[in-house]
Design a protein around this nucleic acid. Structure first.
Lengths: 152, 152
DNA sequence: TATTGACCTCAAGTTTGCTTGAGGTTTTAC
DNA sequence: GTAAAACCTCAAGCAAACTTGAGGTCAATA
């Protein structure tokens, strides 16, 4: 009998990793092709993973949900010596960095929401000063438009 | 002499709309192909826009920044009678709806950030209880993994 | 008038993050 | 021993939101 699902093995097959991590097998292949995770092969050419690949995948998903693109995640993971899965300090560093990103994006959205609020209340839709968009001639003269909500 | 840039015309060419709205000409073509904006043609088959297209584009960009996909934006704009550019009440309704979305997404990101915070502090990277990911056998038994950060 | 710049259409390409499918091998289960 | 389930590779497809390019027309200006 196989010990699939018993968690006693020190190496995992792709199906088991998929099941435990919640990502599809095809996604694991894809991550591997992008250098985000690693595996070695069994005698029959099947992928084998160390258990800590689950941690790595967890980290990848967390970062993704925080809006970090895969290339950046890969870069971050690549900064770790010998490509190991992050220990506590590494994790603190990585997540702090991603959190800055997250903070920035939250800030942007909150700012946007507030301006949205303001404009709902003020009914300035047709005004020249509307902070949500600018359809007046000033914008034309400046050669820019709708710039208030799209700074930078 | 043309009156380009003077803002005296009641109809606008595609280049002028691009310049004033800050979006590329190709994007305007694209929006039109998706039914987000409209134009009529000059004798020489060139696009002509009513001035309020700038408002519409502003609204589109605002909604996009709030994370609303173009298809949804189109649907919202399509709910307006005769496809007019929203007046104050319409605007309030649309933006309130989009803001709900925005609120939800902000909430998600904030929750994620908080959990990230917690995990930086607790150093639980290797623990079975880590709320950021779950690489232990319980997850294996449950047939799910890394589920704490990916509810639903 | 002639030249440039703005505009036209339509098809195809780009990026990100995967999924699907075809065709074939390996492992497991009975 | 054999069938089914799991795995393999590689190519192509998908969705969103655009951009780029080719080949050709229109319009403003010197």
């Amino acid at each position: 009998m196989s010990d699939r699902g018993r968690g006693t093995k020190s190496e995992l097959g792709v199906g088991e990793v998929a099941r435990r991590s919640g990502v599809a097998v095809s996604t694991l292949h894809f991550y591997e092709s992008k250098g985000l995770i690693r595996s070695w092969r069994s005698a029959g050419n099947q992928r084998r993973y160390a258990r800590d690949v689950l941690r790595r995948i967890g980290i990848i998903r967390v970062a993704q949900r925080a809006g970090v693109p895969l290339t950046k995640i890969r870069e971050s993971l690549d900064t770790l010596p010998d490509g190991r899965t992050p220990d506590r300090e590494d994790w603190a560093r990585l997540s702090a960095c991603w959190r800055d990103d997250l903070d920035r994006r939250i800030g942007e959205l909150v700012g946007l929401r507030d301006r949205l609020e303001g404009c709902i209340g003020c009914g300035c839709l047709s005004m020249k000063c509307c902070p949500l968009y600018n359809a007046d001639d000033k914008a034309g003269e400046q050669g820019v438009g709708a710039c208030y909500l799209e700074p930078r």
